[in-house]
Design a protein around this nucleic acid. Structure first.
Lengths: 222, 222
DNA sequence: AGAGCGTCGTCATCGAATCGACAGGGACGA
DNA sequence: TCGTCCCTGTCGATTCGATGACGACGCTCT
């Protein structure tokens, strides 16, 4: 199973490469976007892990190139920043999934496995935590088989929390993720209110939204 | 039951072949359009699954060839892009049904079953949801045995919703599917109006068109 | 060609869902 | 114990979607 890693931060790149190799993957790594395109041009990878910001070519250019040329590789983007606009651009360009930094390596492994298991683009990755299942493509949240009606904002926040579990997500990250106008809700209690509403709608979903005072929020399995 | 798979993307081809074999089909696979024609020339398949874009010959050429030579094989096209023009070209060439990538494998299975169930040329409705039957080839909608008169635009939108059930279909997808000029109706409320008309024409068809505020629309069985 | 019909986009209006502001109270840490 | 941070109920503004009316356009039939 061949994986291409395109990431310019040497530390992170090494972690990913070594971790994947430990798990039996055959891994190539590049640190520039144009090098990534070259590799994709000449070799068939099953999965490519592509950083958003890179010298040479942006990650999104790499994704767009791969899609345009109909490469058979599943594309997983790594994004450091995370605004709705960015996310939409990434998925529109043809990424199959994305991970927001910082991420848990186990999570990366799980998504790589999910990507290699399915034909490109065919089945959306479903996020699961506890008794909750969250389908980003169907935009559907299900607890114990029953759909839960979330508003757009609630959904975005929950998705972020689930994707980052078990890390603490700070208010700034939440604001950037769920609001296009990145900083507006920081001065207000809009985030608090949304959290309250989320907790009310997901009373016993197999996890809790835990407040980490002064730092942010975190999802915790019960 | 013999099936021919013509698909150049190795990953997708393998998934389809293995999946069909798991379900008891005898499967042959090729990766080029001209090879597909050769196979169809010498063997009788019940169903052929044919990718639109392939090296050698385009999928549409394969379909046209099979029709011209009166092969007894039901033809299912796989199309990546999805504009009204493409779709019409495919069906005009003689495909019996089509699937838009990305698709769910269960959906593929269902359509293969539907195709093998009917003798070629005798058109049976292929899409069914609740008490609604929808025939993509004849562009006909039937509820409880009674035909419902839908306009072209209404039909296209309903078809998309049915095919994607139970996923949420966003306005952009609807616009691209039902309007050749992909972005025009996004700034207007044309989509809302069409939805309203659809709902009015299909009052108790065994499903509801559910609005997912801020995300799109979704078909829900009653 | 012209009448008649059907289709579809636009507009205006209405209703409802959503979301942030606010405020009072509670929890936590120093 | 005090100050700060957080929780949550209520309320109103705003946005978003639904729907009826209208008119432009294209087709068909005569």
């Amino acid at each position: 199973m061949r994986v291409l890693v395109a990431e310019d931060d040497k530390g992170l790149r090494d972690v990913i490469v070594l971790g994947l190799q430990d798990n039996g993957y055959r891994v190539d790594a590049v640190e520039r976007g144009d090098d990534a395109i070259d590799q994709l041009k000449w070799y068939e990878y099953d999965v490519a892990i592509i950083d958003w910001r890179m010298p040479g070519r942006e990650g999104i250019d790499v994704v767009a190139w791969a899609r345009k040329h109909d490469r058979p590789t599943a594309l997983l983007m790594l994004t450091a920043r995370d605004t709705p606009a960015d996310r939409i651009r990434g998925l529109d360009a043809g990424a199959d999934d994305y991970l927001v930094k910082p991420f848990d390596f186990g999570e990366l492994l799980a998504r790589v496995r999910a990507l290699q298991r399915r034909p490109r683009g065919v089945d959306a990755p479903v996020l699961e935590r506890g008794r909750l299942a969250l389908d980003p493509v169907k935009r559907l949240v299900v607890v114990d088989g029953r759909a839960v009606g979330l508003t757009a904002t609630e959904y975005l926040i929950l998705e972020l929390l689930v994707r980052r579990t078990p890390a603490v997500v700070d208010r700034k990250a939440i604001a950037e993720h769920a609001w296009a106008d990145e900083t507006d809700p920081l001065g207000s209690n809009a985030i608090d209110v949304q959290m309250s509403r989320l907790r009310a709608k997901l009373p016993s979903a197999g996890f809790r939204i835990v407040t980490v005072r002064g730092a942010g929020y975190r999802l915790e399995e019960v």
